[in-house]
């Protein structure tokens, strides 16, 4: 561990801090919808304020999404690693759960989100 190592490590951490700050300082918008995207294509979009149980079945496999109390969570999945079920609930705009084996992203959209505008048309 020398000076150059420390500088490099510090630079990475500072960079991470800057990115985190930029992402967090974006204006807070009201979360309205939760969408499921597979391979970049919208699979479905649901009202975040509703109480829903949704099955997401694609060529890659099965995931089950529970929406309740303004938050969403993947509660069942037949993917090999099961990581998507351990990512907790999503409730704020931009928060997401990812299931890499099934190419699936579950994401919270806010008013004015580009994809939300696209969906409501």
């Amino acid at each position: 561990m020398n000076k150059k190592d420390l500088l490099l490590t510090a630079a990475v951490l500072v960079l991470a801090g800057i990115f985190a700050a930029v992402f967090c300082l974006q204006p807070h918008k009201k979360p309205v919808m939760v969408t499921a995207t597979v391979d970049g294509e919208v699979y479905g979009a649901w009202d975040l304020s509703a109480d829903l149980e949704v099955d997401i079945d694609t060529e890659y496999g099965h995931n089950h999404l529970s929406i309740r109390d303004g938050s969403a969570q993947i509660t069942e999945a037949d993917c090999p690693d099961g990581l998507c079920m351990h990512q907790g609930t999503v409730r704020e705009g931009g928060e997401m759960n990812v299931c890499l084996p099934h190419h699936l992203i579950v994401e919270v959209l806010t008013e004015g989100d580009e994809s939300y505008d696209g969906l409501s048309q």
Binding site: L13, F19, F23, D39, G94, M96, L100, H103, I105, E107
Partner: peptide
Amino acid sequence: VLRTVHLAWYLPVLLV
């Protein structure tokens, strides 16, 4: 693979 840039959200965590 997932065809989205939104994953950049994970960048700070992955850097650290």
